[in-house]
Amino acid sequence: MNPPKSPFRRIAAIAAGALIGIAGAATVATPAFAHHPEPTGSYCAAKDGTVTVTWSVISSETDIDGVITKLESTVPGDITGGLAVGATLKKQGDGPLTGTQTHTFTGAIPELKLTVGAHWERDGRNADGERSVTAVPSTDCGPTESPSPSPSSSSPTPAPTKSPEVTPSPSTSTPASPSATPSLPAEPEEPVFELEQTCDKMTFIVKNPAKGIPFSATMTTEKGVTKTLVSEPGKTSSVSFDAYAGLKVTVKYDVVEDSETIPYTQPKNCGQGGGGEEDEPTLPLTGAATGGIIAGAALLLAAGAVLFVVARRRRVRFTA
């Protein structure tokens, strides 16, 4: 015979289910706190081809400052202003870092892209983040274009200036925009490369967007230990190595020929007497495990990410 179920058991079951649901929600929500810079960019283009780009970067973190570790722009020339490698990236709410670039392009304006890397130290762990952004045309360029027409046409009469421009414009500018326009939608979204370094683990993480492309990376330590990270669109993949002094991991993508070697950097506050005291508590270990998706894009594949973008662009060109 089955004894009647006690109402207390039902209440306990409901409470347990609620706790499991809350824990699951917390785990799913955790990746939203990944450490990363948040760059934006806009530009104004004059008729003589001079383009002025304004970059702005804020932090994803609301409680700690970071430091800019990487700036790579497709716009020739230096970035002027407060945005520079080594500059402090203030916590969110303390204002952005800004910088400008100016360059004169002879033909169609190419993709104006900035890749920013930053570093944080939180609770004895190193967190590195990297994000890229493509500048968009500004809606507040104003009278910047008015003084530019003089170099484009030497004729004082506006009529002759427009007639040659109108004729080539349909034939010249139309092919220029289709050549650039189809390539943009055709390009897949870029993956996010992340690295987490704790006192006992070095974890490589790749977040592949739903519109990304599949690829794999072979990772080999200086001792010959090899692991493979397979990245599929819409999924997050990771590979971990046991950390020790002198650990170096060489990353080789299947989409490019070059490779990148990343050394392990031990976080501060790791136990000096063998590390046992720092690694034994449950919370740090749990944090490291669930934080694998939190860490922030790394120095990890700084060069690797660039190589991936280059390979992606080459693929688009070959397809076109």
Rank of each mutant, 00 (worst) to 15 (best):
R125A: 09
N126V: 07
N126P: 02
A127K: 04
A127F: 15
A127G: 08
D128T: 13
D128G: 07
E130K: 07
E130R: 15
E130N: 04
S132H: 05
S132G: 05
S132C: 03
V133C: 00
V133A: 02
V133S: 01
A135Q: 02
A135F: 03
A135R: 01
A135V: 02
V136G: 00
V136F: 00
V136Q: 10
V136T: 10
P137Q: 07
S138P: 02
S138G: 15
T139C: 00
T139M: 03
T139Y: 01
T139W: 00
T139I: 01
D140L: 04
D140M: 01
D140Y: 03
D140K: 14
D140S: 13
G142V: 08
P143S: 05
P143G: 00
P143T: 04
P143V: 00
T144A: 12
T144F: 07
E145F: 00
E145N: 03
E145S: 06
P147K: 12
P147D: 11
P147A: 12
S148Y: 06
S148F: 04
P149L: 09
P149V: 09
S150A: 15
S150Y: 11
S150I: 09
P151S: 14
P151I: 06
S152Y: 07
S152R: 15
S152T: 15
S154I: 08
S154H: 12
S154M: 08
S154R: 14
S155C: 07
P156R: 13
P156T: 15
T157G: 11
T157Y: 10
P158W: 07
P158T: 07
A159M: 12
A159T: 15
A159Y: 09
P160G: 07
P160S: 12
P160K: 11
P160I: 04
P160E: 10
T161L: 03
K162H: 10
K162G: 09
K162M: 10
S163D: 10
P164G: 08
P164H: 12
P164T: 13
P164D: 12
E165W: 04
E165Q: 15
V166A: 13
V166D: 14
T167N: 10
T167E: 09
P168R: 14
P168V: 05
S169F: 07
S169A: 15
S169W: 06
P170K: 13
P170Q: 11
P170R: 13
S171E: 11
T172L: 09
